[in-house]
Design a protein around this nucleic acid. Structure first.
Length: 422
DNA sequence: TGACCCGTAAACACTC
DNA sequence: GGAGTGTTTACGGGTC
């Protein structure tokens, strides 16, 4: 058997858009890929927003979700390589506790991760608060999570750089002007390729050692949805977050049995609070979206839907504090919005729907002819509140933070009602 | 069998 | 000049 010559770079260039996404070419064949996203805007934003809110109460949903993203990590033997708790030890990467497997799954630690470099880089970048990382940080992240590379030949760094350069999924972003922050640029994930990366993640071996979290069906539902609707960046992130949230909760249930250090428990509660609060924001206006789109796949749970939309709204700019979350609810009943660019968010969709018959929400397009969508949108706040309670209750029940929830709900509701009255 | 994906190595240029 | 970074080219193995 003679050597198989790999595809030359020249040849790759002949298939723009589809050639560089590792293991993703099939995805493109599935059609319904997002329109080219003007990445310039988001990128600039990302770079500009380097000051991330490190507060524990930070409601940066993508941050949350990308933390959870690491929950995907499974050892080559099917064991979780990274505990869902690992990021609970601290808020920044530097304080991350050692992955569980460093204690309990040493075998996994020394075996090669079942992820391609593209996925590793993707996870690393997504894990960062700003969704941008310098190469060095990518190295660090990989090293932290996969000690295998600590002992591996240094060539893997070259591979990382090679991937960054070669793979269109990753885009280089210049560091802030006038500021010299070390060598190199920041690297971001091109939003256009996020669904592809997610698909690739899905294709990774995800044995379900315990509860089968992340069933392929579930994932495919998410991905399917993203393809049915116009794929916006927010949707993509929503899918990510949805998966992550789901995974996290299931993991938490399993972890619940174990006694946790106080700090860990508190942090977990905070995380759940964050998730829940975001869910609240979504829940209020988005029950409509579920009903509006007849194409939607409802095979997955409502809570997952909630989580998805949840992340969807805050995917890019995301909230920076709990207070903002509280503000959101009232905002959603306001007419009009500041409409921050790059994030016309479904926040806008909810906010505007009563005054915007066209519903530039994106969901409007999917509404059945006539006005059924409006009917749904007219859903009384009471009903919404009921849904909210229900969803929140479920979430909190799972997280074991019912108490916290009650106060959060009532606070949110109070604020919401105040705003409505105004 | 070939196309494609992925990892790896190496060379080179550039920046700090 | 050295180290780190980014780009490009080349090749081999594996999979479909």
């Amino acid at each position: 058997m003679g050597p198989v010559i790999g595809m030359t770079p020249d040849k790759r260039a002949e298939t723009p858009g589809a050639e560089k996404v590792a293991g993703l070419s099939q995805i493109y064949k599935m059609g319904s890929l997002p329109e080219a996203v003007d990445a310039a805007g988001p990128k600039a934003t990302l770079v500009g927003s380097e000051s991330a809110d490190d507060e524990l109460t930070n409601l940066n949903w993508l941050h949350e979700s990308t933390n959870l993203l690491t929950n995907f990590s499974l050892g080559s033997e099917g064991f979780p390589m990274v505990s869902p708790l690992y990021d609970i030890e601290g808020d920044d990467g530097a304080s991350f506790g050692p992955p569980c497997y460093q204690n309990s799954e040493k075998k996994s630690a020394t075996s090669k991760p079942p992820y391609s470099f593209s996925l590793l880089i993707y996870m690393a970048i997504e894990h960062s608060p700003n969704k941008c990382l310098p190469v060095k940080e990518i190295y660090s992240w990989i090293l932290d999570r996969f000690p295998y590379f600590a002992t591996a030949p240094t060539g893997w760094k070259n591979s990382v750089r090679h991937n960054l350069s070669l793979n269109k999924c990753f885009q280089k972003v210049e560091r802030s002007h006038g500021k010299v922050n070390g060598k190199g640029s920041l690297w971001c994930v091109d939003p256009e390729y996020k669904p592809n990366l997610m698909q690739a993640l899905k294709k990774q071996p995800f044995p379900s050692p315990q509860s089968g979290s992340l069933s392929p069906h579930y994932l495919s539902s998410v991905l399917k949805q993203n393809q049915v609707r116009t794929l916006k960046e927010s949707d993509i992130d929503a899918a990510t977050a949805m998966i992550l949230l789901n995974t996290s909760i299931e993991q938490e249930i399993l972890e619940c049995e174990k006694p946790l250090p106080l700090k860990t428990s508190l942090q977990k509660k905070r995380n759940y609070n964050n998730a829940f609060l975001s869910a609240i924001r979504l829940q209020e206006g988005d029950s409509l979206a579920t009903s509006i789109d007849p194409k939607e796949d409802h095979n997955y749970s409502a809570s997952s839907m909630t989580a998805q939309r949840c992340a969807s709204r805050s995917s890019v700019s995301s909230l920076s504090s709990v207070e903002e979350v509280y503000e959101f609810i009232p905002k959603s009943s306001h007419v009009g919005s500041d409409g921050s660019e790059g994030f016309h968010s479904e926040e806008d969709t909810d906010v505007d729907y009563e005054d915007d018959p066209l519903g530039d929400s994106g969901y409007a397009d999917n509404s059945p002819k006539g006005q059924p969508g409006k009917k749904i949108r007219k859903q009384s706040h009471q009903e919404i509140d009921e849904e909210l309670k229900e969803a929140a209750g479920s979430l909190l029940h799972l997280a074991g933070i019912r108490t916290c929830l009650g106060s959060l709900i009532s606070t949110a509701k109070t604020q919401s009602q105040k705003q409505r009255k105004k």
